[in-house]
Deep mutational scan, measured.
Amino acid sequence: MKHYEVEILDAKTREKLCFLDKVEPHATIAEIKNLFTKTHPQWYPARQSLRLDPKGKSLKDEDVLQKLPVGTTATLYFRDLGAQISWVTVFLTEYAGPLFIYLLFYFRVPFIYGHKYDFTSSRHTVVHLACICHSFHYIKRLLETLFVHRFSHGTMPLRNIFKNCTYYWGFAAWMAYYINHPLYTPPTYGAQQVKLALAIFVICQLGNFSIHMALRDLRPAGSKTRKIPYPTKNPFTWLFLLVSCPNYTYEVGSWIGFAIMTQCLPVALFSLVGFTQMTIWAKGKHRSYLKEFRDYPPLRMPIIPFLL
């Protein structure tokens, strides 16, 4: 059985960083990364991007050496992705923050609204209902991160945790300040508006959870398998008939419901920014589905049925 020789060059300087002799033909890129780490321990596998061309796409960890368009002496180019952190850690951090930050404003801890309001309670029912909904949303997200989601990528750049936390924590503080303010004004149409908004919120939260469970069942634990998601017997998953990412559709719907319930401008802005970002993600995933699966359902749109 022939063996391969693998040289790894710096993608920027073309400097030879490592030479691997007698590499098995069936070795994966993940195994080559581990061998590279032995000579350069500062670059652990998650930091490494190996590619066939200095400006090309990163090879997948599961790619097999003998199936790549290389000879028995293969040249790979290395790029440092920077310090990495696990997706689970990032999600837990960015979701735990809003949960606790919101509660600080809800309980009106000292130095927020003035001494005479310390630890007082709002007289408006919608304020307490909003706290329950907000807390439920982020507790749900935390539990899904721990027990439901299966991540195709193990890590992301460390800098992302600061960007994500600034976004989630900042908006949580902004909306919580106004919703729990002693001078907060309840919704214009009173109980009817709150009940309608609560119904929207609850339905969308159930829908979002149902989609996450359906997506989880598509991917076996520990794998990166991708399949076309289809509706199940659960009615909340029937939205798969019309959109590629109904989890985002339901998520946006939840925040629209919360915005109607609280009639709070920061919540509306958070919903708008979230919708914009999720639309970008949904379009990317939709394109990926179309590219990977020739039999992908043609009627589906990325996030909004028939429109977007």
Rank of each mutant, 00 (worst) to 15 (best):
F275Y: 11
R159I: 15
T225Y: 14
W281K: 14
G82W: 10
T185R: 05
K291M: 08
M175E: 04
H286D: 09
L103R: 03
L104G: 12
T262I: 01
A173I: 07
I29R: 04
Y44G: 05
I200K: 15
D10V: 04
P182L: 03
E5P: 00
A130I: 00
Q192N: 09
P98A: 08
Y177L: 06
N34M: 05
I280N: 12
C204L: 01
K285C: 03
K2T: 06
Q192I: 07
W174L: 06
P187A: 05
V267W: 00
F107I: 00
F306L: 09
Y113V: 02
G170C: 09
Q263H: 08
S152I: 15
R159Y: 15
I200V: 12
H128I: 13
H149L: 04
N160G: 02
F107V: 07
P246H: 03
C131L: 08
H181T: 02
S210H: 11
I101R: 05
T166S: 04
M156I: 05
P182Q: 01
E5A: 11
Y102D: 05
P54C: 15
Y296M: 01
E251D: 08
R14P: 06
K12S: 01
I29Q: 07
I8R: 04
I260V: 11
V194T: 01
H212G: 02
C18D: 09
T145M: 09
L308I: 05
V202A: 12
P266L: 05
R14I: 03
H212C: 15
T276A: 11
H115S: 02
T73E: 13
F147L: 10
L50V: 08
I260M: 06
H212I: 12
E62D: 07
L215S: 15
P220L: 11
S271C: 09
K12E: 11
D61A: 11
V273D: 01
H149K: 00
L99S: 07
S254W: 06
A176G: 11
L242V: 05
K33M: 03
S49D: 05
G154S: 07
L68A: 12
C165T: 15
L50M: 13
E292S: 09
R51N: 02
L196S: 14
P220T: 06
L92N: 15
K2F: 11
D10M: 08
Q42E: 06
I211V: 10
P298L: 07
G253R: 02
M156L: 03
I32G: 13
S152F: 11
N160K: 05
F136V: 06
E292Q: 09
H40R: 10
K57S: 15
W43F: 00
R226W: 09
S58C: 14
K233R: 10
K55R: 09
R216G: 07
S49M: 06
A27D: 07
K227E: 10
H153R: 05
H115P: 06
D53H: 14
E31P: 01
I303C: 10
S58V: 07
C133R: 02
T72A: 10
P54H: 00
N160T: 00
P220H: 04
K33S: 01
H137S: 06
F151R: 15
T28N: 11
Q263R: 12
R123Q: 09
P98Q: 03
Q48Y: 07
R51G: 07
Q66L: 04
L50Y: 02
M175T: 10
F240Y: 10
W43L: 10
P45Y: 02
L299P: 08
L158R: 15
P302R: 06
P266I: 09
L17S: 13
G207H: 15
H149W: 00
L183F: 10
R79Q: 10
A282T: 06
G170D: 03
T276N: 06
S254C: 05
C131P: 14
V267S: 12
R300H: 02
Y250S: 08
M213V: 10
G207L: 03
I101T: 09
T155D: 15
F119L: 11
V127K: 01
F111W: 06
K12R: 10
P231L: 08
M301A: 07
K33I: 08
G190V: 09
K22G: 05
L239A: 08
Q84G: 06
G154K: 14
R150F: 05
P266H: 06
Y102C: 02
I200N: 05
E7L: 02
T185K: 14
D61T: 01
Y113R: 14
I101G: 07
P45T: 02
S135D: 04
T166M: 00
F171R: 12
H149F: 04
F236V: 02
F209T: 01
I85K: 01
P235H: 03
K163E: 09
H40K: 03
L215M: 06
T145F: 04
T75Y: 04
F119D: 14
K12G: 01
R219P: 02
K233I: 14
C264Y: 05
L307E: 02
R294W: 06
P187Q: 01
P54T: 02
Y168F: 00
A96K: 13
Y296I: 08
F91V: 03
K2H: 05
F275P: 00
